Every structure is written in structure tokens, then in C-alpha cells.
Simulated assay, not measured.
Amino acid sequence: MKKILSLCLLLTFLIGCKDNQSKSEGLEATVSEIKSEELPITAQIANANGMEKFNELDELNFTFNVKVNDTLRSNRAWKWFPKTKKVELTEKGETISYTQGDSLTENALAADQKFINDSYWLLFPYQLMWSDFESTYNEKGISPISNEEMKMLTVSYKGKGGYSPDDSYHIFFGEDNMIKEWTYVSSTGRELTTTWEDYETFKGIPIAKMHKSADSSFQLYFTDIKFK
């Protein structure tokens, strides 16, 4: 159990830390002009999760929380202005602001690592359009928590850069292309499996507010969500 808990805490700072800028340019041209069934599965997932609506947003506010055995381990409040790439973090009573793409100070770089992690959990379906990876799609797979048959997509970064290269994700989703469960695998083979649940729609964007392990000892969840 100690090994599992230490892994979970480590992963909250490592999971998904990729360079999410590599494909973000030019994405305002909507893919909805193509019939949905003709799109790659990655684009279908992004569209099902309201990617077009995201391009209309000026500001996103959310708080990232992690509990392990009912003890709150992380609590970070974010303000994100995607059009200007400005980011603001409030944590432990202190606030830091920076602009992505600038030459970052040591403190801003540490904040940006946390932001990439937290926003990955919030909007991972969009990373299927924003970032570079290798993928394998299977129409049938067995989900790791519910043991239900679902669609399965494996995404591997293979040393593409960012804050934690060489990790991968096994994503399990339904006919509606909404993620239900996933397993994160680090470059060293360590794993974290959680649900994607408690979906709520904000400005046309569905957000899974809760992610938890099979025994609920690990819970990662979002509060104070406001999209403007």
C-alpha cells in the first residue's frame, strides 16, 4: 500500500507533462466540416468533448485537488487565459502569474510543470489534437476497473519532449467517445489507473470532475470550475 500511495503522489506531478504547444497553432479551423465518422478516432474524441467550444473561451478557472486516504495532498487554483497564454496559480496562499512561451523563472517553470499536469487531467481529450504521439486503436478492449468491454486507444509519447517524456496512456471510452477509465504508465513502468466520472457540462464542454482508483483510496477531482 505504501508503494501505491507514493506512486500516486508522484504521478500527480508527472502525469501528462508534455509540450502541449506543438500542434496548438492553426487548430481554430474546425474539423466539424468533415463528417464525424470520417475523422480519426482522436478527432472524434476531441469533438465529443467540446473542442470547438474551447476555441471560443477567453478564461478558464478551476481548482485541482488530490486526496489519498481522505487526506488532501494537493489543492491548486488556476486561472488560464488560452488566447493570451497567461496562467495564474494560487497555492498555499501565494499567487504566481506567467505567460507560456516566455523565458520562465525557476518559480514560473515549477508552476508551469504543475499546470501542464493539472490541465492534462482537465482537458486530456484535446491533447489528442494538440500534442505529438504514436497511437494504437482497438474497437474492443476490457477496461481495468469495471471490466467492461469498451473502445481502447493507447497513446505513447516515445521521447517527444516535455516535462516527462516516454510515458503512455491506455484510454477506455464508450460509443459516445467519452472517456470512462484510463491507465497511465510512466517511462519506468509505474502505473496509475483511475475512472473518469461525474461529468458536468460547462459552456458546452463536458468535464469529468472525478478520477479515482478502484478502491477509492486515490481521488483526483476538480472544483470551482468556471469557463468564460
Score class of each variant (00 low, 15 high):
residue 56 E to G: 02
residue 7 L to I: 11
residue 92 K to E: 14
residue 165 P to S: 14
residue 208 A to I: 08
residue 97 S to I: 04
residue 9 L to N: 12
residue 95 T to A: 05
residue 9 L to T: 01
residue 220 L to T: 00
residue 123 L to Q: 04
residue 174 G to T: 13
residue 62 F to K: 02
residue 72 L to N: 07
residue 162 G to A: 12
residue 70 D to S: 13
residue 77 A to M: 08
residue 95 T to K: 11
residue 100 Q to E: 15
residue 102 D to I: 01
residue 52 E to H: 09
residue 31 V to N: 13
residue 205 I to W: 03
residue 201 T to K: 13
residue 69 N to D: 14
residue 31 V to F: 13
residue 90 T to E: 12
residue 187 S to W: 00
residue 41 I to E: 10
residue 114 K to G: 00
residue 76 R to W: 10
residue 85 K to Y: 11
residue 206 P to E: 06
residue 109 L to S: 13
residue 215 D to I: 06
residue 12 T to D: 10
residue 223 T to Q: 04
residue 184 Y to T: 03
residue 226 K to Q: 09
residue 223 T to F: 00
residue 29 A to Q: 10
residue 129 M to I: 13
residue 161 G to M: 05
residue 177 N to D: 13
residue 99 T to W: 00
residue 158 K to G: 00
residue 112 D to Y: 08
residue 120 Y to V: 09
residue 45 I to Y: 03
residue 109 L to R: 06
residue 110 A to Q: 11
residue 100 Q to Y: 10
residue 98 Y to V: 06
residue 122 L to I: 06
residue 66 V to K: 01
residue 90 T to S: 09
residue 45 I to W: 05
residue 112 D to L: 02
residue 86 K to C: 00
residue 7 L to E: 11
residue 211 H to K: 10
residue 138 N to R: 14
residue 225 I to C: 01
residue 78 W to H: 05
residue 118 D to P: 01
residue 32 S to W: 01
residue 14 L to S: 05
residue 193 T to H: 02
residue 72 L to W: 06
residue 209 K to P: 01
residue 184 Y to W: 11
residue 77 A to P: 00
residue 30 T to P: 05
residue 62 F to A: 08
residue 75 N to F: 06
residue 139 E to K: 11
residue 102 D to P: 01
residue 40 P to C: 12
residue 114 K to A: 14
residue 152 M to A: 02
residue 196 W to D: 07
residue 225 I to P: 00
residue 73 R to N: 07
residue 209 K to A: 06
residue 64 F to Y: 15
residue 152 M to L: 15
residue 37 E to K: 13
residue 31 V to T: 13
residue 215 D to H: 05
residue 15 I to H: 01
residue 64 F to T: 08
residue 104 L to R: 02
residue 80 W to P: 00
residue 47 N to C: 01
residue 25 E to N: 08
residue 191 E to A: 03
residue 7 L to W: 03
residue 165 P to F: 11
residue 199 Y to A: 07
residue 102 D to S: 13
residue 23 K to H: 09
residue 51 M to Y: 15
residue 79 K to F: 01
residue 155 V to R: 07
residue 34 I to W: 09
residue 133 F to K: 02
residue 14 L to P: 00
residue 181 E to R: 02
residue 93 G to V: 05
residue 53 K to Q: 15
residue 42 T to I: 03
residue 159 G to C: 04
residue 188 T to M: 04
residue 141 G to K: 08
residue 65 N to D: 04
residue 201 T to I: 14
residue 142 I to R: 11
residue 174 G to D: 15
residue 218 F to M: 03
residue 49 N to V: 10
residue 177 N to A: 08
residue 118 D to C: 07
residue 14 L to A: 11
residue 46 A to M: 10
residue 127 Q to A: 09
residue 118 D to G: 08
residue 52 E to C: 04
residue 56 E to K: 14
residue 174 G to N: 15
residue 214 A to L: 06
residue 129 M to A: 09
residue 49 N to F: 07
residue 192 L to C: 04
residue 91 E to T: 12
residue 5 L to S: 03
residue 80 W to V: 15
residue 185 V to A: 02
residue 113 Q to E: 09
residue 3 K to V: 09
residue 97 S to F: 02
residue 118 D to V: 05
residue 85 K to H: 12
residue 59 E to S: 07
residue 68 V to N: 01
residue 158 K to N: 15
residue 159 G to R: 05
residue 69 N to M: 08
residue 148 E to I: 04
